[in-house]
Design a protein around this nucleic acid. Sequence first.
DNA 1: ATGATATTTGCAAATAAAGCAAAGATGAGC
DNA 2: GCTCATCTTTGCTTTATTTGCAAATATCAT
Lengths: 316, 316
Amino acid sequence: MNSLNAIRLFTASVDAGSFSEVGRRLGMAPSSVSRQVAALEDSVGAQLIHRTTRKLSLTEAGRLYFERVSRILAALDEATAAVSHLEESPRGVLHVNGPTAFGVRHVAPALPDFLARYPEVRIELTLTDNFVDLLEVGADVAVRVGELEDSSLIARRLAPNRRVLCASPGYLAKAGAPERPQDLADHNCLVYTRHHGNVNWNLGGPDGLAEVRVGGNLRTNNTEAVHAAALGGLGIALLPSWLVGQEVQSGRLAEVLPGYRAAPGALDTGIHALYPADRHLSTKVRAFVDFMVERFGPRPYWEDPPQDGADASPMG
Amino acid sequence: MNSLNAIRLFTASVDAGSFSEVGRRLGMAPSSVSRQVAALEDSVGAQLIHRTTRKLSLTEAGRLYFERVSRILAALDEATAAVSHLEESPRGVLHVNGPTAFGVRHVAPALPDFLARYPEVRIELTLTDNFVDLLEVGADVAVRVGELEDSSLIARRLAPNRRVLCASPGYLAKAGAPERPQDLADHNCLVYTRHHGNVNWNLGGPDGLAEVRVGGNLRTNNTEAVHAAALGGLGIALLPSWLVGQEVQSGRLAEVLPGYRAAPGALDTGIHALYPADRHLSTKVRAFVDFMVERFGPRPYWEDPPQDGADASPMG
DNA sequence: ATGATATTTGCAAATAAAGCAAAGATGAGC
DNA sequence: GCTCATCTTTGCTTTATTTGCAAATATCAT
């Protein structure tokens, strides 16, 4: 196998006109240059350079090889430079994958700022609700809400994933506001569930953990449907803060049992960015993840303003 | 320095879709493939391939690199093949250098046959009478008559370089034919010399070596002038057999003192082909030299037909 | 002729690459 | 859900390649 180094030394020798000169320029022994070129000649099976102790001159084969190989080396350096250039600063196409609801509400709105900061990046955003293999779909980074499947991917936490009990002010005015978890049993609770069977909400508060069997006239496997029903005044819902936080802040929804918190389950492990555990993390992915971490901060904009103990889980 | 091998393994991995498969195809350990590709990634500073244990997938940088580098590798192989092709059989331009007189009489007439046998060769024939540096003038092979300068070139003997005494039949009819070397002193001898001063001809015969001081009404540093004068009947000349052999055979000139031979001097070491002592002798040069050796044979066509002792130097 | 500098080669040291084995990861099939 | 086969990677050792130095030889300028 003829080595790239030998070819580089060959062209350098042609340029310099002397193996010793090449050695001097490249800081290596002239004998090494001589041997590499000789090895190259052996590998192509032809004399490339006529040598005397005073000067080198190309053979016909050498001239032919030099002309072609010079351009090839330049092209190779260019290709390497192009790839290195890609990593100098965030640039190129960034494939982002995420769940539809969160993506629409919190990823897409962030993109204009991100693209303004990194004008050489182009984003391809794929929103899917079934978990997909990052590499399969060709994504560089994925945003995942809750339940991190075991994988070799690196997960960077972007935000907590708190769930809040809430209902529309209209519903509460009509049905009254529960005062203790047990009161939920007498309310129309809008249940998000993926399976049949009973549903319990686990609520932690000053008096410990309370588990309440809840139900009502709407069960659905779609969070957005629960959300819409709650906004419509149908009943009390347990929904992620990223979905209802801003509506609670604006008063379109009111928090129920504000002194209690839903016990963190598998769905509550947080909101993460996932990306391959490569040795060379691309700058565009790093930039994106850093940007999202910075944008959401320790307390995302959809959460209440800080209050005592609001961030610590009452469940310990 | 990123090695060519690593790049080849990278593209092979992309093609095969697996480091192990590459290892199987190329008969090497998968760990080696993995390490080479990883080293390549380090050298270009970017992840090229996302890996899981089950499949490989290209990063954007990898796709970019693969596309460019595939073409480059193909071009490199092509360049190598082109050079190797040059050496498969005699082909390309062959620069031949030689002295004018001999070249015109015995090299140029040989070329049609040579080119007919090797139709892919093109010849550039440079005839010069001053000795030139082969490499300086870009010649692949030189034909030299006599006096081999000390050099690193390889000399292959093509033919002997005998000198013969001759004169036109007309001159001999008029002035008589000498019978012993001493008789030459009374003849008009046509002297080829490069310097001023006396000229002696050394002749060996049955009665040993005889040195005769010769002279006449023509001294010149040009062999062809001597030749022309001899043909014109001016006198007796000492000329190389390659120049007058065929004329002696045809009777246009007659050999003088045929029992004697000119003592070999520096000019008589023979006729040689010279070419660089490269480790890889190009096939076109080898073909040319072989062709000329074969064409001239042990007894060139310009020499007399074999006769007893005619080929052995009487000088021992 | 002599000196400075060139290529090349032998030899020993340094560097790089290879294989092997083991560990961790992943998907297929039962 | 579990086991198995296969994949990538890493540590370690062995092997192969490359390097530099010194010496031999060659060439040109002075």
